[in-house]
Design a protein around this nucleic acid. Structure first.
Length: 417
RNA sequence: GGGGGGGUGCCCGAGUGGCCAAUGGGAGCGGGCUGUAAACCCGCCGGCGUAUGCCUACAGGGGUUCAAAUCCUCUCCCCCCCA
């Protein structure tokens, strides 16, 4: 009797651990994780899963979604997710990319960003099992004494272990003192929240482990650290990020999403299936096999990937429409079904004609006259599907003329009076 | 506090008096090939309405010179070594 009950709990533990383990990079340490899950089941008490959020760039993309999906799995098991808005740490600035001096964000702006962030996150997360907190809640009350106490728990050598610090140190790029404090602060967040698990990208490993050691110092049961792989952006090389411009945003229109997926390198497809869709492992294995033995055409597989991803954020129907639109524009080279309108102001007309270069700049398809000239000289500009050959051209434009730059920029002209 | 080395275009990085709007690579952009994939090939990559022309640019100010990214000087910033 007693033993069968115990094994039932163990089965539950195994199940949770198995699902959570899928697609993650590391669980540190695994034994602690099993213990925590077990305790949670036995006492029927959900675990607190912490995820730190930077309110400076509120646009979420598929890279963030990797973690959000994992958090959702925790929620499905009944655990509580804490989205910790790093409003206070945002003022410190992330240690990476020191050349960019971040503008100080006003509390209002931070609040707005946080709202945008959580709205997007709830495309995946269950709001009922999510708590939102702000780390200014504890940091703004701290004094210098508290800070000293905290910092005395870390050594420089330990901080220098961290990858990006040691690289910068070796390269001779400056590391500022306040940047050193970043892991300390993130670590203290875990203490303040008494978190059971912290989850983040592999780049956050050090900071999250700092949380563990601080919690021990504060006499708490240390959190388990789960690191998730960092998804490459659509360039296939660098991590997906807004500033690198290689991202697929969660709120992007379905057509954009689909199109961007189609432009990722083939080698990345399986990784995207694993990290950015909900397909079962076995299914992904099948696809991988098909690709390898040539029974599946890569282009077809990529279309499927596009559909899966769009379906996740919209629905099946929208995904199919996005695919149809893609075929229409890029396979059949037809005009998109919807073309954004641009008002052509009267001032740029001269004797009822418009200089092409000026037109391109006015509607924002070229950064400068020189840029517009180059585009034309290189044959990248079409009006009503006819290539413009001379940058000197003055043209008579009519309502609804279609201007195209490159393969994907279209505009329908509207003449304002 | 003392000594040394640096700051160049989106990034890396050459250039140490004229031939420098500044070699090269990366990123980006346009074209070709294709499956808007990758790889590859060609071209562009400060601005100015039409220019063997002008303007703005090599951390910032001042100066030398017919001529400066390059020399001098002051200021600011970064790195290293010693204390």
């Amino acid at each position: 009797m007693k033993s069968s009950k115990k094994s039932k709990i163990e089965k539950l533990v195994d199940e949770q651990v198995k699902i959570i383990s899928r697609g993650m990079e590391e669980i540190l340490p695994l034994e602690d994780f099993e213990k925590k899950i077990k305790k949670s089941i036995e006492q029927n008490k959900p675990l607190k899963i912490k995820f730190g959020v930077d309110p400076t760039s509120p646009d979420l993309h598929l890279g963030h979604a990797v973690i959000l999906h994992k958090l959702k799995q925790f929620q499905d098991f009944g655990h509580i997710v804490i989205l910790l808005i790093g409003d206070y740490t945002a003022r410190v600035g992330d240690p990476s990319g020191r050349s960019v001096t971040r503008p100080q964000l006003s509390p209002k702006k931070i609040e707005k960003n946080a709202k945008t962030y959580t709205d997007q996150a709830f495309k995946i997360l269950d709001p009922k099992k999510t708590r939102i907190d702000y780390n200014s809640r504890w940091f703004s009350k701290m004094n210098f004494n508290d800070l000293l106490k905290l910092t005395s728990k870390f050594t420089i050598a330990r901080l220098l272990e961290r990858d990006d610090f040691s690289i910068r140190y070796q390269k001779g790029t400056p590391i500022f003192l306040h940047e050193f404090l970043y892991p300390v602060m993130q670590g203290y967040d875990s203490v303040a929240l008494k978190s059971d698990v912290e989850i983040g990208g592999t780049d956050q490993k050090f900071n999250m482990l700092a949380g563990r050691s601080l919690q021990i110092d504060f006499g708490q049961d240390p959190q388990v650290v789960i690191t998730m792989p960092i998804l490459e952006g659509i360039d296939g090389v660098q991590r997906m990020s807004k500033s690198l411009g290689n991202y697929i945003g969660l709120t992007e229109p379905a057509k954009e999403m689909f199109g961007k997926v189609m432009s990722i390198p083939d080698e990345l497809m399986i990784r995207y299936f694993n990290l950015a869709t909900n397909l079962e492992e076995d299914e992904v294995k099948k696809i991988e096999k098909g690709l390898n033995d040539g029974t599946l055409h890569p282009a077809e597989v990529k279309r499927r990937l596009g559909r899966e991803i769009v379906t996740l954020y919209y629905d099946r129907k929208t995904a199919l429409e996005a695919q149809a639109e893609f075929d229409r524009v890029f396979k059949e080279k037809k005009l998109p079904s919807e073309i954004p309108e641009f008002k052509v102001p009267r001032e740029i007309f001269k004797n009822s004609k418009v200089w092409v270069v000026r037109l391109l700049v006015t509607i924002g398809f070229a950064k400068s006259n020189s840029n517009a000239r180059r585009l034309i000289e290189q044959g990248g500009v079409k009006i009503n599907n006819k290539i413009i050959k001379s940058p000197e051209l003055e043209l008579k434009i009519k309502e609804n003329d279609i201007i195209q730059v490159g393969k994907r920029k279209f505009a329908r002209l509207v003449i304002s009076h």
